[in-house]
C-alpha cells in the first residue's frame, strides 16, 4: 500500500486505490448484499412489497432443502462439479508433468500451443463442437461405424457426455496452475529421488505432488467453481440424444430468475451455491495445507 503511494505519488495513488475500492464496493459487495437481502424476503406481488407480509426469514433457503427435486439437483450439481474436478486433475496432471519436466524446446511449445489454441474459441462453441462430435451422425459415430464397431449410430448423451464436455471446457484452468507449480520443481530433485531407488509412483507421491500442492489447489478451486457455476455446458450436452435432461443447479436458478420471476428464491439458491463453493475452497485449502498467500501466487 505504502509502496503504491511511493511509486505513484499521492494523487495518482489515491485515484488507483479509489477506483479499486469503488469497483469492489459497487460491483461485488453491494450486489451481493442486495442479493442476500432479496433472498431473505418472500416472493410477493409488487403492491405487497414493503408491506406487513414483507418480513425477512430463511423461508427461501428452507424450500431448497424441503423441495426434493431442487435439493437433489443441488447435491448432484455439487457432486458432479467435484467429479469434474477430480477427472480434470487426473487428466491434466500427466499432461502438466510432461510439459513441465519432460518435453523440451519446440515440442513443448507446440504442445502448449495445441492446448491453448482451442481456447481462443468461446466456451459455447467449444462445447458445441463436442455436441457435433457426440451427436447421432457425429464424428465419433461415423468413425465407430466406419471401423465396423457398431452397425447403427449410438446415443452418446448422458452423464458421460456432460463430464467429457465439462472436463474439456476447463482443462486449461487445471493444466496451467499445475504446469506452473511442477515447472518450478528442480529436476535434480526428481533425479535424486530416482537415484535413491524410488519408483515413479513414489517420486510423484513424495516429491512432485507435495511440491505442486498449491497449483493443485488452485486448479481444483478454479475448475470446481467454473463447473458448479456453468449453465451452457450441461444445457447443450444434456440435449444430446440419450441425455437424461437432468438439470444443473445453475439452470434451476436461471429459470427461477427468468422463467418464474421469483427473484427471491433465485437469490437464495444462488447464494447457497456461492456459500457451498466458498466452503469447498476452504476445504481444499485445508486438505492441501496451503494458505491464501500460496494460492494467490
Amino acid at each position: 500500500m505504502a509502496e503504491l503511494f511511493r511509486r505513484l505519488g499521492a494523487v495518482a495513488g489515491a485515484l488507483v486505490l479509489g477506483t479499486v475500492i469503488l469497483w469492489v464496493l459497487f460491483l461485488v459487495v453491494l450486489p451481493q448484499l442486495f442479493m442476500v437481502d432479496m433472498s431473505l424476503r418472500p416472493h410477493l406481488p409488487v403492491p405487497e412489497q414493503g408491506g406487513p407480509a414483507d418480513v425477512r426469514s430463511l423461508a427461501n433457503y428452507a424450500t431448497l432443502f424441503a423441495n426434493d427435486a431442487h435439493r437433489g439437483i443441488f447435491l448432484r450439481t455439487i457432486f458432479s462439479a467435484a467429479l469434474v474436478t477430480v477427472l480434470a486433475l487426473v487428466v491434466c496432471y500427466p499432461v502438466a508433468y510432461y510439459l513441465a519436466q519432460v518435453a523440451r524446446g519446440p515440442t513443448a511449445a507446440l504442445l502448449v500451443l495445441g492446448l491453448v489454441v482451442p481456447f481462443w474459441v468461446n466456451e459455447i462453441l467449444r462445447t458445441f463442437s463436442w455436441f457435433l462430435i457426440l451427436s447421432r451422425n457425429g464424428l465419433l459415430n461415423q468413425v465407430l461405424m466406419g471401423l465396423g464397431l457398431t452397425e447403427a449410430p449410438l446415443n452418446m448423451g448422458g452423464v458421460g457426455a456432460v463430464m467429457v464436455g465439462m472436463v474439456y471446457a476447463y482443462i486449461l484452468f487445471m493444466v496451467f496452475p499445475l504446469y506452473n507449480a511442477i515447472e518450478s520443481l528442480d529436476r535434480n530433485q526428481i533425479e535424486a529421488a530416482r537415484d535413491l531407488g524410488a519408483s515413479w509412483p513414489r517420486i510423484h507421491a513424495r516429491v512432485v505432488v507435495p511440491h505442486a500442492k498449491p497449483g493443485i489447489a488452485v486448479g481444483c478451486i478454479m475448475t470446481f467453481m467454473l463447473a458448479a457455476g456453468t449453465v451452457a455446458v450441461p444445457q447443450l450436452l444434456e440435449a444430446l440424444p440419450g441425455g437424461t435432461n437432468a438439470r444443473w443447479f445453475t439452470q434451476v436458478i436461471y429459470s427461477l430468475f427468468f422463467d418464474g420471476g421469483d427473484w427471491n428464491s433465485g437469490a437464495a439458491y444462488a447464494f447457497a451455491l456461492l456459500v457451498s463453493c466458498v466452503i469447498f475452497i476452504f476445504v481444499m485449502m485445508r486438505v492441501f495445507r496451503v494458505g491464501i498467500a500460496d494460492v494467490a501466487k
Binding site: D186, N188, Q189, A192
Partner: peptide, 9 residues
Amino acid sequence: LIFQNLALF
C-alpha cells in the same frame, strides 16, 4: 549421486 546443488527435498 550427490548433486552439484545437493537437491535435498
